[in-house]
Design a protein around this nucleic acid. Sequence first.
DNA 1: ACTTTAAGTTTCATGTGGTGAAACCTCGGT
DNA 2: ACCGAGGTTTCACCACATGAAACTTAAAGT
Lengths: 259, 259
Amino acid sequence: MDFQDQDTVGDNRYLVKPLYKAAQVLRTVCQSPTALTLKDITELCEIPKSTVYRYLYTMQKLDMIAHDPRSETYSPGLGLWWLMQTADPFANLRLVGRRQRRKLMKRFNATVSLGVLTGSQILYLEIIECSRSLRMRAQPGARDEVHSTALGKALLAFRPRSQWDALIPEKMVRRTANTIVVRRDLLENLEQVRRNGYAIERGENEDGASCIAAPIIDENGFSVASISVSLPTNQTSDALFSEIVAAVVDTCQIIQSRL
Amino acid sequence: MDFQDQDTVGDNRYLVKPLYKAAQVLRTVCQSPTALTLKDITELCEIPKSTVYRYLYTMQKLDMIAHDPRSETYSPGLGLWWLMQTADPFANLRLVGRRQRRKLMKRFNATVSLGVLTGSQILYLEIIECSRSLRMRAQPGARDEVHSTALGKALLAFRPRSQWDALIPEKMVRRTANTIVVRRDLLENLEQVRRNGYAIERGENEDGASCIAAPIIDENGFSVASISVSLPTNQTSDALFSEIVAAVVDTCQIIQSRL
DNA sequence: ACTTTAAGTTTCATGTGGTGAAACCTCGGT
DNA sequence: ACCGAGGTTTCACCACATGAAACTTAAAGT
């Protein structure tokens, strides 16, 4: 959910500290919703100001950070954006079927998420919020564990069984009372998901929230992403549930035919 | 058009070299259409391999670069993508009105571009290619000068006149025989664009290519972006031309009402 | 108008640690 | 088994990243 922690570094032998610390500065600038001053960054990063100053200066030259002399503030630069142009591996995925996903959100007035697998975590590529009062609080870029999310189970189920073991986290962290924390149970669940073609989850990741997800399958029959509909558990009758299942599966099929 | 040149650095006093060189490595990895090996990067950047090795190692830890041990190759990492989530200043602009722009492309079977002003250059945010045999060769992220493009003129015309001088490049580079290279001529042209509400360009940036652009205006009456339709000059009758003008202006109006 | 304070900029001495040549592995090909 | 090409590790050197402190600037308080 949070930004990946960089605290625990095993083998520092080859770590180039300036890079490491500058990245910290860059992240700080990018994460801030507002433009930051030198002082802000100094305090947030806990790096001496002359050092931060030099980093900012260098990154500015590199176009990674933009400096507004008027307000003395720093903000993310265009160079970053430039890099992404060619480097964004999910650009296409986010683009294709945006409309179907929005339609899905509108139809059930529920949050629709698009996620991919990174390691043994789900990375949220897109979260289309509904207008309900209580909704998911996650942002695109956030992560969750595979074992506690419908997105994760849908994605995992349609990977080769041989990968399952590696992709399921060592320790399956308990998020709620309903979270599946026994490896065997999860494997069983995945088999079922594979048979059904969709995954469901009732309060396993967040109390009171349920989720229905289906995979987007590539030409080799393996999942590349998954789409989910989330809504409060108490608002889901059985009839609605199966209606949503059909809609999600349908949406995924449309999208996968477009890829 | 090319990546910004980093060759000419005025004041090296505060430049942190490791950052600078690592950025070079990162760019190389991101720009390559294919995953690169250590050797490739070493040669492309002309930096000793142990140094590149350490940079890659560090950036890998930072999640900026992904390393595939199977093939011994490096590719852009997810950390970059993460940064962009919050840092992409144009995300909204690219999203809103995508459909209208695509419709525009389909209607005239011509390339539709979306651009913003960065310094005295146009930055292409989006280029929707048509199916014609000869089309624009630019990629999103590419740049062109304001003075030789319809996008640039549409954008510039609807900025405060007081900014014109600063935003027009010192030396107006000649791209073709038709390029406007005299400052006075350009200013006159801008006034006309402002009166008309749209900008046209016939082979001023690329021989044989014409372009029609209109601005997207914000609440203060200033342009934030512009949209253009490009097609071969020899395929543009006067009737078609005015039809396109109407369509582009219309599209921009729809989009600006949505922002 | 003067003082004070806070923030950005520059300088400088210090010694860390970034550097690259070269040695060392590791593995695929012949 | 040998060979070569690439990736990994070592090592000694001294460039240069570093942070404290001095300096500059600008704005806020009195």
